[in-house]
């Protein structure tokens, strides 16, 4: 599903590469934690998957497509197959829960009837039934992140990328978020989650890829956060 082949990314303003000679394979339906300290290149990895950035060296394949050969006007279609969740939720403050989730479908031109049908389903899937009319500032951080997940998932993407989704949320609430991500993963969606939350990684026992200064230093199935060799 995601295939990195000797990928190196150097930002023009930076001397040290953000990613260096990274080769990673993520299969369909996998759940992968991307761990490592701040600045180790986790977000850069996710941006390369979205084609928000281009690698300086190496190849990136996503959903069977070589991104280097994907023309710019096709990038939106790539992104429709990928859902994204961030630490800062990125909700529209003047739209309620339903509208925030529906926004993702409206801007890709989905018909209104379809939107009215699928949005409530997804709102329920993330555990927000009965809160569809709330505005973001009437929700807790955990609930806001659920809205963001619902928006990322409403178009049934093949891949869900989560960049430190629990970074702004207390540990107890984080468990609920992880349950939602796990539920989404069980529908067959590939999930890649960047985090440095050790407790979460340890509790989930999923594949762990560790980055350090842009290099892969560990790739372990059913891994934990701290080194376990």
């Amino acid at each position: 599903m995601i295939h990195f082949e000797n990928v190196t990314k150097v930002y023009t303003t930076q001397k040290h590469p953000a990613l260096e000679d990274v080769s990673i394979d993520v299969g369909k339906g996998e759940f992968v934690f991307l761990v490592g300290p701040s600045g180790s290149g986790k977000s850069t990895f996710l941006r390369l998957v979205l084609k928000e950035e281009k690698p300086n060296k190496g190849r990136v394949h996503v959903a069977g497509k070589d991104l280097a050969r994907l023309s710019n006007w096709k990038v939106p279609h790539l992104r429709r197959r990928i859902g994204c969740v961030f630490q800062d939720f990125r909700l529209l403050p003047n739209k309620n829960v339903f509208e925030n989730v529906a926004f993702a479908l409206e801007v890709i031109g989905k018909p209104r009837r379809f939107i009215r049908k699928v949005v409530p389903e997804v709102v329920e899937l993330v555990g927000l039934e009965g809160k569809a009319d709330r505005m973001p500032d009437e929700l807790s951080g955990g609930e806001q992140q659920r809205v963001a997940i619902a928006r990322a998932f409403v178009n049934r993407p093949q891949i869900l990328l989560a960049d430190e989704p629990t970074g702004n949320i207390d540990p107890a609430t984080s468990i609920g978020i992880m349950k939602v991500l796990d539920r989404i993963n069980r529908t067959g969606t590939t999930v890649v989650m960047a985090t440095h939350d050790a407790a979460i990684v340890d509790s989930m026992r999923k594949r762990v890829i560790e980055l350090e200064e842009g290099e892969v230093v560990r790739d372990q199935t059913r891994g934990v956060y701290g080194q376990a060799y």
């Binding site: 939106p76 429709r80 990928i82 990125r90 926004f103 993702a104 801007v107 890709i108 031109g109």
Partner: peptide
Amino acid sequence: KETGIMRLVGASNFYI
């Protein structure tokens, strides 16, 4: 913010 989200969820340039 809106256009950032639009781009992220795959809205076409034309639509944005």
